[in-house]
């Protein structure tokens, strides 16, 4: 088994990985407290499972996978789903600017959890369809269809009918 890093090495890794993981987590769960909890959980599990991580270089990708696995586990909780209604889309009014950042984050937060995870992985983490499918444990076809549904919904919310997807691998 790979030797665990020293606390100093792990702290250094955690400090470097923290901002990126935190932003992914925030996009996934939509609030600061849950995002912080999610990343703390992912980092602690990464350290606890160092035998599979093996090297500090591999740790960021491992921590990302644990973060998404943990988030998907949270999403399966009935309480989480009840707290995240997605049927009613936010009324953005006539003056909404589709390029306004908070509006985009609100729109992403309004997606159902699986679609949100696909959007974050494909458009924020920049993973291709295959890697996204592997990370979420679903088929590439599911990733493609979830991406399509998500973009449909984002179009509706953002009022931008020109939002298209170039299906890239």
């Amino acid at each position: 088994m790979a030797r665990p890093p020293t606390q100093e090495q792990f702290d250094e890794f955690a400090q470097v990985a923290w901002p990126r993981l935190y932003r992914s987590a925030y996009l996934l769960v939509g609030d600061h407290a849950s995002a912080e909890d999610l990343v703390q959980t992912a980092l602690a599990k990464t350290f606890g499972n160092w035998g599979r991580v093996r090297t500090l270089e591999a740790a960021p990708a491992y921590a990302r996978q644990v973060l998404f696995n943990t988030a998907m586990s949270w999403f399966r909780k009935a309480s989480w789903n009840r707290e995240q209604p997605t049927e009613v889309l936010p009324d953005l009014g006539q003056d909404s600017d589709p390029t306004t950042r908070s509006v985009l984050l609100d729109a992403v937060a309004a997606l159902p959890p699986r679609q949100r995870a696909v959007v974050v992985l494909r458009f924020y983490e920049d993973l291709d369809v295959r890697r996204t499918a592997a990370l979420l444990g679903c088929s590439e076809g599911t990733v493609k269809s979830q991406t399509s549904f998500a973009l449909d919904k984002l179009r509706t919310i953002l009022g931008d009918p020109t939002l298209t997807l170039e299906v890239t691998q």
């Binding site: 400090q15 992914s24 703390q40 984050l105 973009l151 298209t164």
Partner: peptide, 30 residues
């Protein structure tokens, strides 16, 4: 807006998210 625009906008939006300091004490406990 294309998917590449969405990628850029999402990254820009995420960059604007304020990131708190890593609570290392809490991490060590976990």
């Amino acid at each position: 807006m294309t998917d590449n625009d969405l990628r850029t906008l999402l990254r820009d939006a995420a960059d604007e998210v304020s990131v708190p300091r890593l609570a290392t004490d809490e991490l060590h406990l976990r």
